[in-house]
Write a protein that binds this DNA or RNA. Structure first.
Length: 258
DNA sequence: ATGGCAATTCGAAATTGA
C-alpha cells in the first residue's frame, strides 16, 4: 500500500501536476494540503476520470485539505473536534482498514506572533485529538505539512535559522509530543542523513542549491511501524515548470491491509 | 544588500506563506 502527502500550493494551478503524478505513481492514498479552493471548485470529476475518489475540506484563498484514493473512502471526519477553528486544516477517513489523517499545520509566521501562539494551541488540540483517534484506530497514519523541521538535520542552515519559526524549541517540543503518543516519523525509519528536504523557498534558487527544510511528514502508529517498507521524498515534481514549493513524501506499507 | 518568489483577491497593491 502506497500513501503520499503533498502540499500543492493551489490545486487550481497544480491540478495537471497532480494528475500526472497520480498516473505515474498510482498511490493508494494521496493527501493534499493548500488546495485553496471552496468545495464547489474542487476537481472531483477530473480526479474520478483518473480513477480517484476524493473528499475535500476547503475554503477560498487559504488552507484546504483533501484525501484521494482509488479505494472506498469511509468514515470521513472534518476539522479538529476539540479546537474551534475557521481554517480548513484537517480531514480524516478510513481507507482499506487504515485510519488516514491529513493535516495542514499552522505556519506560525514568526516566533511570538499571534499566529505562532495559534500554531502552538492548534498543535495542542491536534495532539489530544490524535490520542483519542489512536484509542479507536490501531492502524493510523498522519500525513501532512507540519510546518516543523524536527531537528537540525532537517534544516539547510541551522545556525541561520536558530530559534526561528519552523525550528523553534516550542514547535519541536510539540512535534515530540505527537511522537510521544506512539507515532513514528516514517522517513527516519529508513534515512538518518541531513539535507533531505521536502520544501524549498521559491526565491534564491533555493531548490538548485538545496536550501530547504523537511517539514512534510508521515507519522505511523505502533501497529503500522512493522509494516513500513520505505519512505522517500520524490523531488521530481519540484523540477517541473511552475512547481509547488513542496514536493511529495511517499510511504510504502507491506501487508498492512486485511 | 534582511531582499528575493508565487498565489490570491470585486482586480492594484496588499497579504500570506515558510
Amino acid at each position: 500500500m502506497k500513501l503520499a502527502t503533498w502540499n500543492v500550493n493551489s490545486l487550481t494551478v497544480r491540478l495537471p501536476h497532480v494528475l500526472d503524478w497520480l498516473s505515474a505513481n498510482q498511490p493508494d492514498v494521496l493527501c493534499l494540503q493548500e488546495t485553496k479552493q471552496e468545495d464547489s471548485k474542487f476537481p472531483y470529476a477530473a480526479l474520478k476520470e483518473a480513477g480517484y475518489n476524493a473528499v475535500h475540506n476547503g475554503q477560498k484563498t487559504y488552507n484546504g485539505v483533501a484525501i484521494l484514493s482509488p479505494h472506498a473512502i469511509e468514515a470521513v471526519h472534518l476539522d479538529l473536534p476539540n479546537y474551534a477553528d475557521t481554517q480548513k486544516r484537517i480531514i480524516a477517513a478510513t481507507i482499506q482498514g487504515i485510519r488516514v489523517i491529513c493535516a495542514y499545520v499552522v505556519n506560525g509566521q514568526a516566533v511570538d506572533s499571534d499566529k505562532y501562539h495559534y500554531k502552538l494551541a492548534w498543535l495542542n488540540g491536534l495532539q489530544s485529538w490524535l490520542q483519542a483517534e489512536l484509542s479507536q484506530h490501531e492502524k493510523l497514519v498522519v500525513l501532512g505539512d507540519y510546518n516543523i523541521a524536527p531537528d537540525d538535520r532537517d534544516c539547510h542552515d541551522p545556525q541561520a535559522w536558530l530559534g526561528q519559526v519552523l525550528v523553534s524549541p516550542a514547535e519541536r517540543a510539540a512535534f515530540q509530543q505527537l511522537l510521544a503518543l506512539g507515532l513514528h516519523d516514517s522517513f527516519r525509519l529508513f534515512n538518518d542523513q541531513a539535507g533531505e528536504f521536502s520544501w524549498w523557498d521559491y526565491r534564491m534558487a533555493a531548490f538548485r542549491r538545496n536550501m530547504g527544510m523537511r517539514i512534510d511528514h508521515i507519522l505511523v502508529s505502533n501497529a503500522l511501524k512493522p509494516h513500513c517498507e520505505s519512505c522517500v521524498i520524490d523531488k521530481t515534481p519540484r523540477k517541473l515548470e511552475r512547481p509547488s514549493d513542496h514536493t511529495p513524501v511517499v510511504l510504502t506499507l507491506a501487508n498492512a491491509s486485511p
